[in-house]
Design a protein around this nucleic acid. Structure first.
Length: 174
DNA sequence: ATGGTGATTGTTTAT
DNA sequence: ATAAACAATCACCAT
């Protein structure tokens, strides 16, 4: 019904969807070369520095699914030592899942992301007081970790461990 | 002994 | 918006 050409980026959608097909962009290794080149700094742009308190990225739905899949895989293949084997099998299975099946994983990932954002909020503040090698740091903003509050005792959601709810969305349309 | 690597896909982040 | 990197995992090989 509403399938008109609203956006003009339609032709570029494909490129946006899959700009690169290469699975291995060189090497997605989790290790960075111990050189002066930091992790993220292709050019000589000194702006990214490693952070001691930087919160790690929340696991995506795929990773959440992978975690469970690892157990299954190990149970089915006791003896596989290659992590890549689980990843490969997991990836294949993951694609096999439908949106509905991935939904629960995405839900969890979304929650993880929400928490991550919160951490980032605090982390950003810290960076803000420390990251300033622009030109003059003389005056400086002295707002520090003392007033980051802004809203802490608002929502205490401490019961998000084992909740099997969130299942009211039933769409048999698919 | 230590740690980097390999492989998956999704998100996250920086420019 | 795009491109690149990183998120976990685990045994193994190289230094």
């Amino acid at each position: 019904m509403k399938n008109a050409k609203g956006k003009g980026t339609l032709k570029n959608i494909k490129e946006t969807l899959k700009p690169v097909d290469d699975r291995k962009v060189g090497k997605r290794k989790a290790s960075y070369k111990p050189d002066k080149s930091s992790a993220r700094k292709p050019e000589k742009e000194k702006k990214a520095k490693k952070d001691p308190n930087k919160p790690k990225r929340p696991p995506s739905a795929f990773f959440v699914f992978l975690e469970e899949f690892r157990k299954t895989f190990k149970a089915d293949n006791p003896g596989v030592k290659a992590v890549s084997a689980v990843a490969k099998a997991g990836g294949e299975k993951w694609k096999s899942l439908t949106a509905a099946e991935k939904a629960p994983y995405e839900a969890k990932a979304a929650k993880r992301k929400a928490e991550y954002e919160k951490l980032m909020n605090a982390y950003n503040k810290k960076q803000q007081s420390s990251a300033d090698d622009e030109s003059d740091k003389s005056k400086s903003e002295v707002n520090d970790e003392d007033d980051e509050a802004s809203g802490e005792e608002d929502h205490h959601d401490d019961d998000d461990d084992d909740e099997d709810d969130e299942e009211d969305d039933d769409e048999d349309d698919e």
